[in-house]
């Protein structure tokens, strides 16, 4: 079985700071991490490798710095990694991105494609399902559990209040929830071994893509404006007994239509 895991490098939001002057995210010096749902997708692939036998290929579309995320995946035990990178890919929205990634998957070939549910920086949850549409293969989203028997992938698809058990024949695509498994740590053997591995580069020239469907030209999404949340920092301190305090808090929440 050949598994391709799609990962994205994102800023570590737990360490994000807001620039007090410009009110924008401070990206300088903020460490990048593998998107949490994607990291669990790597774990799911490695477990399938252990239980069913598979090769695990990890791919990421992004700037050259994304090599670190791919190397981390190798250090967890993935077999090979490819960086999809080209100036022509810059400015791609989710549709253009999924077009490019689907092109790369077509070129590499896969029985099972695993994606994280969504990235913590964009939160669209669109790229995984779109890749499946481009490839014309079945997709199962929100996987909380995953197993493989023969040519069949069985998934526990999580909802807020219930779950479904779904099966699909390979080739297919599954998007994975971070809560499925705790991703393993990198290990010393693979940290050393990744040093001798090349990260393959996939560029525009390697793929058969319509230039009108990628990059800014291929991106129907236009971001009109972005804004940073403003926080009202006025703090009112009241000294009240518990019963009175509870009433006051409920009244304050109702006034703001939060209750």
């Amino acid at each position: 079985m050949k598994i391709i895991v799609c990962i994205k490098q994102v800023p570590n939001t737990t360490e994000i700071k807001i620039d007090p002057v410009t009110n924008t995210l401070k990206r300088d010096g903020v460490p990048s991490i593998i998107n949490p749902d994607d990291k669990t997708a790597i774990e799911a692939a490695l477990r399938l490798k252990e239980t069913n036998g598979a090769t695990v290929t990890v791919i990421s579309m992004g700037p050259p710095q994304a090599e670190k995320a791919l190397r981390e995946a190798l250090a967890m035990g993935a077999d090979e990694a490819f960086l999809i990178t080209d100036r022509a890919f810059g400015g791609s929205d989710t549709l253009a991105t999924s077009t490019i990634i689907a092109g790369a998957i077509e070129k590499l070939g896969a029985d099972l494609v695993l994606c994280g549910r969504q990235a913590i920086d964009g939160d669209t949850a669109q790229v995984g399902p779109q890749i499946a549409e481009h490839l014309g293969i079945p997709q199962i989203t929100y996987a909380a559990d995953l197993s493989c028997e023969g040519n069949c992938i069985r998934v526990k698809r999580q909802f807020e209040d219930r779950y479904q058990i779904l099966e699909a024949d390979m080739p297919c695509l599954v998007t994975v929830l971070a809560t499925m498994e705790k991703p393993r740590y990198m290990n010393v053997w693979d940290i050393v071994a990744q040093d001798e591995k090349e990260i393959g580069k996939i560029t525009f020239a390697d793929l058969t893509l319509d230039p009108a469907r990628i990059g800014l030209n291929g991106s129907p999404t236009k971001v009109k404006s972005t804004a940073t949340k403003q926080f009202d920092k006025t703090i009112e301190t009241l000294e009240l007994d518990p019963a009175e305090a509870a009433k006051t808090i409920v009244a304050a929440l109702q006034k703001r239509h939060l209750l």
């Binding site: 670190k68 190397r71 250090a75 990198m186 050393v192 990744q194």
Partner: peptide, 17 residues
């Protein structure tokens, strides 16, 4: 050239510890 071996090794140990 970026020394990924050292970067990844340190990241792994910090996480683990």
């Amino acid at each position: 050239m970026t020394d990924y071996k050292t970067i990844l090794f340190e990241q792994m140990l910090k996480d683990f510890a």
